[in-house]
Design a binder for these strands. Structure first.
Lengths: 207, 207
DNA sequence: CGGAAAACTGTACCCCGGGTGCAGTTTCAT
DNA sequence: ATGAAACTGCACCCGGGGTACAGTTTTCCG
């Protein structure tokens, strides 16, 4: 386990992530990245064959981090209630909180960036992004299916579409946050989505 | 009204739009654009001082076209019913149809592209995009306000957030369409949003 | 401690895309 | 027909991605 090497790669990826989230992938130069990471251009190409290979490592790292966040929040939510519907509602609450906080310190989303900028350029990155989105979607879809068995939906609604809407709301919310200066959008949109779920599944619409 | 010039500019913008929607702004070369538009590089710089000036013209054109589509659909919806709620529901139906069709022939959305790629690079483009999004949002927000006066919402829901969600669903839906190959997402998400509106406002949830 | 491998640095260079400069040519309107 | 507007052609500069490779430092291990 070469530790010096790992630390350097981590510095490169961390620097690249910040810059790319801010300026986009194509607009971010390797020179900027190596400056921010305090290494040399040669050092960069010692670790990665080209910019795209770094992009792949970056997206991989990002999705792993993101997955960890998801898993942790679900675990916390599950520990707070036995009821599947409540668990999902709590999760969405925690998720809205977390995303709002993250948007303040670390605005943007690599998935959205690469989706929109790199889709055709590097098929490997595209595949990883696709897989990442599918994973998020599936986590919600499974929960929705479990819930629907216990609480029959009050509206003929396609659960698959409802799961898709989670992704839609998150990615769209990030876009809105970016277009306007305030960071409240993402969290609020998630909570609005949560209200819809409550309205659809809850047997008692008053609470 | 120099007509030859106008036709050339239109050819440039049309070519640029297709290429940029496909590959992103930074990744699209001026050389590609002038090839696709069948002019020379000199010709390009005769019309536009630089790539950013063309981007501004492009976004302007795009927003005008988009606005026209919105206006037309609202007019058609308004002609089919007297009731504000019905008008909005019909509009969303037409909108979902139109967007699905447009995603097939002309996939992507310049607003999303520029939002994610150019936000900091050219402040003018950023402003135009922001204004464009605000316009869409406001059209829906006005309708929602009118509807809420007649049909008190069945859920304490913030109408502003509900208007934001329209943008969220549209932009997020375009992202989903892009991540996965099929083009049904955008239209379906809009229809799902429409169902939520019907559930919130309609006095009779059965129909 | 010594030495070889791994992890870098430095420098010089190539290519390509954005962009400039400007002289020459076509097209159009009066 | 003529002058302005709408282009073309060509030669060139600069900055960023990327290569090549020799030299230097750090680490690890016997």
């Amino acid at each position: 386990m070469s530790n010096r090497s790992h630390a350097t790669q981590e510095r490169i990826l961390a620097a690249a992530e910040t810059l790319i989230l801010g300026r986009g992938f194509s607009s971010t130069g390797i020179d900027e990245i190596v400056d921010a990471a305090a290494i040399t251009k040669s050092g960069f190409f010692y670790h990665y064959a080209d910019k795209n290979e770094m992009a792949r490592a970056l997206v991989k790292r990002y999705l792993e981090k993101d997955n960890q966040v998801f898993t942790d929040l679900f675990a916390r939510a599950d520990s707070l209630s036995e009821d599947p519907l409540q668990q999902l509602l709590i999760f969405l609450h925690l998720f809205a909180e977390t995303m709002t906080r993250m948007e303040m310190t670390h605005p943007g989303c690599l998935v959205v960036t690469f989706t929109y900028e790199r889709y055709q350029a590097d098929e490997q990155v595209a595949d990883m992004v696709r897989q990442g989105v599918l994973t998020w979607r599936q986590l919600i879809a499974q929960r929705l299916a479990t819930i629907a068995e216990i609480y029959p939906p009050r509206l003929e609604v396609d659960l698959e579409e409802l799961a898709d809407m989670f992704t839609t709301v998150v990615e769209g919310g990030i876009l809105l946050t970016r277009v306007f200066d305030h960071n409240k959008h993402l969290g609020r949109q998630v909570l609005l989505y949560r209200n819809f779920l409550r309205m659809i599944f809850s047997p008692d619409p008053s609470r």
